[in-house]
Design a binder for these strands. Structure first.
Lengths: 130, 130
DNA sequence: CTTTTTGCAAATCTTTTGCACTCTA
DNA sequence: TAGAGTGCAAAAGATTTGCAAAAAG
């Protein structure tokens, strides 16, 4: 399970992390909550929101926004990477993008910006859905 | 002003487009509405939402989501490009990224995905804000 | 005259908060 | 025991939607 210092390992947090380690697609707080409930775990929706947020803040899990502006979470590898997301099944593949990181730096320098971060998400249909 | 076929050029739409062509940063529907009001234009908030949405759908303007999940709009160049956004003043610079587009294709092919689109946004502090 | 658009206000929906209560360290 | 964490239910806020009136072609 995703482990984070300074966050007490409560039953609820353990449950959320467990679910996250099971799911391979980006899921909303509501979806994670639904899974918990269906598994018989008693966890409040607010707690799921708070936990997911906390985990995301420490960088333990990744977040992205779907087209509707909902926050989607997913347990991911620890090093910097981006995602290839299936627009039908939401299957997610982590991708490393060294050349893009470099490009990012270059662009920023050219424009006189001091970079703080970037978002790169590629959408499409995965093998099974196409 | 941004012109789109099949959308009747009403006073409200003209007003929204005019504001968009004035603003150089990504703005929320609420912000656009506020500007309209402050200029004495009488346009309903719902209309602003509907107009912005319609324009975005036709590709006449660009949309992106901020960290809070709010939709931000901006009139942009017609060809495919991405953005460099200042996290303080929201100043936006359009950037072309041929190498990234190529990389995107390559990754998708490798993973067996059929690409439908991608999101690339670079955030940082602009010259004036750093 | 027919089809779009609008404006409002009401309804949605996701996410956040206040608070009293329950755990963990 | 003190500080963190939790559950609800209420509060926020951004969007959407229903509908009757107004505008456009």
């Amino acid at each position: 399970m995703v482990n984070v210092e300074s966050l007490r390992p409560t039953r609820q947090r353990r449950a959320v992390s467990d679910v996250l380690s099971t799911i391979t697609k980006f899921s909303s707080a509501q979806e994670v909550h639904a899974v918990l409930i269906s598994k018989g775990e008693k966890v409040g929706l607010a707690t799921v929101y708070r936990t997911l947020q906390a985990l995301a803040e420490t960088g333990a899990i990744d977040v992205l926004r779907n087209e509707d502006g909902e926050a989607l979470y997913r347990a991911c590898g620890t090093d910097h990477h981006h995602h290839l997301v299936c627009t039908i099944c939401n299957k997610t593949t982590e991708i490393a993008a060294p050349e893009v990181e470099i490009w990012t730096e270059k662009i920023a320098r050219e424009q006189g910006y001091l970079i703080s971060g970037h978002t790169i998400e590629v959408f499409g249909l995965c093998k099974n859905c196409r």
